[in-house]
Design a protein around this nucleic acid. Sequence first.
DNA 1: GGTGAAATTGTTATCCA
DNA 2: TGGATAACAATTTCACC
Lengths: 159, 159
Amino acid sequence: MDKKDLEILQILQKDASVPLSDLAQAVHLSTTPCWRRLQKLQEEGVIRQHVVLCDPARLNLGLTVMVTLKAAQHNEKWMQKFITGVKDIPEIVEILRMSGDIDYLLKVHVPDMAGFDLVYKKLVKVADLQDVSSSFVMEVIKSTTALPLDYAILKSGKN
Amino acid sequence: MDKKDLEILQILQKDASVPLSDLAQAVHLSTTPCWRRLQKLQEEGVIRQHVVLCDPARLNLGLTVMVTLKAAQHNEKWMQKFITGVKDIPEIVEILRMSGDIDYLLKVHVPDMAGFDLVYKKLVKVADLQDVSSSFVMEVIKSTTALPLDYAILKSGKN
DNA sequence: GGTGAAATTGTTATCCA
DNA sequence: TGGATAACAATTTCACC
């Protein structure tokens, strides 16, 4: 990976609908090498997915809730039960296992409080939980899928 | 928006690189009406962006940190200072203003602890903060940009 | 690695049911 | 609204630096 690859990623992380010809021009390349770089980035798994991002408000998802919880038991069996039970709930878009005081942090998209209550009830049925706590998102100040590229390890010294 | 629109979104939220002809076939339509629906979904702002998702690990972003913090002052001036200062830090990919005990929740991507410390120092310089607390992500169990579509309000009764 | 152009495939516009 | 076709633009492959 070199500087041009990062330039390509920078653009595509913001807008993947740009034609290859425009992308190539932006990184001062012709289409073929630019295309080959793209292929390589996908094969290597640097680029994982091509997706569209939807507006939660337009899909009647006006409420975002962050749920923190502790496991009732700390063993493999509990963890498996919890993960398999929670993973397929579509309203839960993110499940992070955390260090420190809290075991898991979940992000939940629902239309409203009533909708959240339904998900909450589903959640507590999955496995024994301790200290379930819900915080509601008042305002999304920033939200991006674009990762910082400044730390990527470059192969060639040519910048 | 009707059921076919949701089917289109369902597919594109997982993979936006499918050719229009395949997409059309999947929703039992020919390319033209499928294309028109896509255009409309974009114009209406249901589809916000077309992006590629990258693998943090491959970009040397091995550490994800969730930072919670309280404002030192609760006024518009402080908020403006905080937001403008934090928004442009590329390692901070998400800033949520929360209800309850904690004022803000941030998501930070960095290579390692040393990298986080640098961002942390940047962060505390921006504005006066109270109770800054960092939790480290041990494992990403689920992470998707695909929103649940079951709550969308359908215009036509034809399913 | 890079270029330019040909072959292939996908997208957009026009028109008709 | 949906479908067929044609015009257009894009991507992928190829032979050659």
